[in-house]
Design a protein around this nucleic acid. Structure first.
Length: 873
RNA sequence: GCUCGGAUGGUGGAAUGGUAUACACGAAGGACUUAAAAUCCUUUGGUCGCAAGACCUUGUGGGUUCAAAUCCCACUCCGAGCACCA
């Protein structure tokens, strides 16, 4: 009776042994002794560290960790020094809300959760070096988060602002733009309000260009790069000034990317928040319809940008929103190009906080302006002739007939004549083209005209959608912002030697709702001495946002215990940058932008050696629950990895998660399918034990491959090649199926030879051991056990990754497919390298082919060496 | 609305111009068993056919090519991101 595969026994045994052996201590230069041996090739493989929630892990969490584990194990076997650490991002609202609910200090909850997470991770057999574990809530860690903040402050990149910010009425804290999801709080779903309050802001916009440019060289998924580009939202345009008719000292400045349409401006629009409106309401500027304007601005004032956006998302409205606005009677501006008098409107389709808060409206060449103009019956003036015309648009077809007179077309006439057609066809277009009705610029192409018009009437200007990072939270559970407010000296940084500024114990964690954090109530803590003058001072009571600690954590892993420096320069130089970074796509415009920003800042002040923190990024696709929904306590559909490990084993879980489908694809969990990978491991188990039994029988006799199994040898080399390449590319599903094919073949050959008692051994220990090595990163426990049983003393995970022999991969025989008109009619097997003529003769001699060719004549023959011969008849 | 992905058996998926459906699950039949589980063997895209075989098939419709899941054009549906950014 053969011993059965007992995953519980094996996995527990090796977990303990590996710990004793210190198998996963980061090799080489990482030793905490500081005696760094910065030699050899390195590979820094990083997972996005988890937030240790009270619910523990579900089976979706480890998917990315399994991938990096496999990848780093292979790299280690290939002789690289590996840094593969893990830690916890534990500041933030959930721990705090838990604390409020259960009246325990968040730290206690966090420690408990971390312990649980670690236990769960441990069971899956990861190769993390836990000596390097970090925790963002550890004062020894956040000392350096605070230190970076002080550096930002020192360099003028952190400032206090009183501008209105996003305020979540439920979480009772300010939020950054990145924390919103369509006008709602990303965390709790409440509709965001705008609130004016003092807060700390980081000048991420100073890095907008660098963040944009350096995306080019990153080996990241294209869509992540694209969403960062969108988020940064750079646009190059012009600032143009429109003087006010009755008071030439006053002007309205607009931002436009289409200066080439300046001659087509028929009105101006300002946002309700615009300076001009403030002046009107203050009676600094007199207008005829004061009441109407006041009413409109009042009505729209409370509608924040966010709310308007949220309304815009209403599908019943479709693209954009029905536009409203009021003409400001009594104010007229002058088009700087034409000298025309132009009316001014106030309308909330113009955003107050983008550009100058005012736009020039060109209804003939802008969809939104067109919509507004149509509603309020405003003039249109066409100034761009498109370079090409869509065939189906009536208006342009008529136009096209008058090709010669383009530049001189009288648009009013055209409009009159073709009124019906215009109404049913195109009334405006936004494409670039050739200028018309634009005086000296007539005949120029848009690009040239834009340049020249900008130069003559205004100046170049670059704008971004990216906003500075609102960095204050009015909550307890975050890093204290390390500054004090002194009546005499103003804002004073806490000196570096006094860091960290630790969180004090409080009785109540509830937010105050007043815009002050709960810390404000701790008098002992708040009242302090000014480091500069020694006088009375108050500590800053705002804390940092959730994203602060994760914006630089990958650096701390390099030198986690250094209390003197953020990171030792030599070590940083060796290990940076992160070679492979794996995590969820939801961080595209949050963590991944913030971390890049901080990294670039740290580069500029000489702390790091590389411009970008993460060289290569892979996205892990979400694992959904069996019902196709997100795995969540709320739906009661969570699968706990502990249960799976208990029933099926960690190795089976690892294989299953990698075998489910492409790594970056979202996919539903299905416990029934666990059986496949499990059977695969059992086959290997049985085969190995069988081999071992045989070798005991034969004692010292050496084994040789039987003639029939040179094919097996070739398959082994192919398998080694394919598996290595697939791991490199994160194509774990096909790596596993390749190994399954190999094992199926092994089994088949083993069975045949057992029955036939043929000479030689098809399955030698050498073949099997090579295979176990490539399987080892996927299934570390079972391979280690079998490796030991085959008589090996050292860990399989310290073995060298097998090399493959190119010459053995080449097949000796190939199947040639015979096609007639591209349809497969026959095939034959021949030695590799058959010539076209030989193949043709062979194919034509086949009865199946003759049958098809008897009544027709071959017009052409296509031969693809070693693959196909196709006859065209 | 814009941008980017995607659509392949009963299911997850493989194949990126050259044998479509690898690998796995499920299903059906058989062996072993008192029985069941496990295991092993066989079959498994569809239609017609006793069979040999023929024809059809990668969301739909066109096209390029000796040859298309793969390239091009149009469309349908699904997913993600952005969303009045001038």
């Amino acid at each position: 009776m053969q011993e059965s595969y007992n995953h519980r026994k094996i996995e527990e045994k090796w977990r303990k042994n590996w710990q004793k052996m210190e198998l996963y201590k980061t090799s080489g230069p990482s030793t905490s002794s500081g005696q760094a041996d910065l030699k050899g090739e390195k590979e820094y493989v990083l997972d996005m560290f988890p937030y240790p929630s009270g619910d523990g892990l579900h089976v979706g969490h480890p998917k990315g960790y399994i991938a990096t584990d496999i990848y780093s194990r292979m790299k280690k076997m290939q002789g690289k020094n590996i840094l593969h650490p893990m830690g916890f991002d534990a500041f933030g609202l959930p721990a705090e809300n838990y604390a409020i609910k259960n009246k325990v200090h968040p730290k206690i909850a966090v420690d408990k959760n971390v312990k649980k997470f670690k236990e769960q991770l441990e069971k899956i057999g990861f190769n993390y070096d836990w000596d390097r574990e970090i925790n963002t809530t550890n004062p020894e860690y956040y000392r350096w988060t605070q230190w970076i903040f002080l550096k930002l402050l020192e360099k003028g990149l952190a400032y206090e602002s009183e501008e209105p910010i996003n305020w979540c009425p439920s979480c009772q804290t300010g939020l950054a733009n990145e924390d919103l999801d369509g006008g709602k709080c990303e965390r709790c779903g409440s509709v965001i309000e705008q609130k004016k309050m003092r807060q700390w802001v980081l000048k991420i916009t100073d890095y907008a260009d660098k963040l944009l440019e350096d995306l080019e060289d990153l080996d990241w998924p294209e869509y992540i790069k694209e969403s960062q580009r969108n988020w940064i939202g750079k646009s190059e345009g012009a600032l143009l000034q429109f003087k006010i008719l009755n008071d030439k000292s006053q002007k309205i400045e607009v931002f436009t990317t289409r200066a080439d349409t300046l001659f087509g401006v028929t009105y101006l629009v300002v946002a309700p928040e615009h300076e001009l409106i403030k002046k009107i309401l203050n009676h600094e500027l007199r207008i005829m319809n004061y009441e109407e304007v006041r009413e409109y601005s009042e009505k729209t004032k409370n509608k924040t940008e966010i709310e308007r956006t949220a309304e815009g998302k209403n599908p019943s409205i479709g693209s954009g929103q029905a536009k409203t606005g009021v003409k400001i009677e009594g104010i007229t501006v002058i088009n700087p190009a034409t000298g025309d008098e132009v009316p001014v409107f106030v309308a909330d389709y113009v955003l107050g906080n983008y550009g100058t808060g005012a736009v020039m409206a060109v209804p003939a060449h802008d969809e939104r302006d067109f919509e507004f103009a149509k509603k309020y019956n405003l003039a249109r003036k066409c100034v761009i002739r498109p370079l090409s015309f869509p065939k189906e648009k009536v208006w342009f077809k008529n136009w096209q007939k008058k090709e010669e007179s383009y530049g001189m077309v009288d648009f009013d006439k055209v409009l009159e004549k073709d009124k019906d057609k215009i109404l049913s066809g195109h009334e405006w277009h936004t494409r670039e083209g050739i200028l018309i009705n634009s005086g000296e610029f007539d005949g120029m192409e848009s690009e040239e005209a834009r340049r020249k018009i900008t130069k003559k009437f205004g100046k170049k200007q670059v704008k971004y959608k990216l906003r500075d990072w609102v960095f204050s939270r009015q909550r307890y559970w975050g890093e204290p912002i390390p500054v004090v407010h002194c009546e005499k000296c103003g804002v004073v940084a806490v000196p570096g030697k006094d860091l960290p500024v630790t969180l004090p114990k409080v009785e109540r964690y509830e937010p105050t709702g007043t815009g002050e954090s709960p810390l404000a109530n701790i008098k002992d803590w708040v009242n302090t001495k000014c480091p500069k003058c020694g006088g009375e001072a108050r500590r800053e009571t705002n804390t940092m946002p959730q994203w602060a600690g994760s914006s630089w954590y990958y650096l701390r892993y390099i030198d986690p215990k250094n209390s003197k420096k953020l990171v030792e320069k030599e070590k940083e130089k060796y290990w940076s940058p992160v070679d492979v970074y794996v995590g969820g796509a939801e961080h595209a415009t949050r963590h991944l932008i913030y971390a890049r920003f901080w990294h670039k800042f740290l580069f500029d002040i000489g702390i790091v050696n590389y411009k970008e923190p993460f060289k290569k990024l892979y996205n892990v696709g979400l694992i959904l629950a069996e019902d196709g929904k997100k795995m969540s306590k709320r739906y009661n559909n969570v699968v706990n990895p502990d249960d799976i490990v208990e029933t099926w084993g960690a190795d089976t879980l690892r294989l299953y998660e990698m075998f489910m489908g492409p790594f970056n694809q979202e996919i539903a969990w299905n416990t029934d399918n666990m059986i496949g990978p499990r059977r695969f491991l059992e086959k290997i188990w049985k085969l190995t034990l069988k081999l071992k039994a045989k070798s005991l029988e034969k004692k010292n006799k050496s084994f040789k491959l039987s003639a029939s199994s040179s094919q097996l040898d070739s398959l082994l080399h192919k398998t080694v090649k394919k598996v290595g390449e697939d791991i490199e590319d994160f194509k774990f599903n096909t790596a596993i199926s390749t190994m399954m094919i190999f094992v199926n073949e092994l089994e088949k050959i083993e069975k045949i030879t057992t029955h036939k008692k043929s000479q030689g051994e098809p399955l030698t220990q050498e073949v099997l051991e090579k295979f176990l090595k490539i399987l080892a990163p996927f299934a570390p426990h079972i391979t280690e056990e079998l490796w030991e049983r085959l008589g090996n003393k050292n860990s399989i995970h310290l073995e060298k990754w097998p090399e493959y022999d190119k010459s053995k991969i080449i097949e000796e025989k190939v199947n040639i497919v015979v096609q007639i008109n591209g349809k497969i009619r026959a095939q034959f097997e021949v030695e590799i390298g058959i010539s076209e003529n030989e193949a043709k003769d062979k194919a034509l001699s086949m009865p199946e082919i003759q049958k098809w060719l008897s009544s027709s004549e071959i017009r052409k023959t296509i031969f693809v060496p070693n693959k196909i011969i196709n006859f065209v008849v």
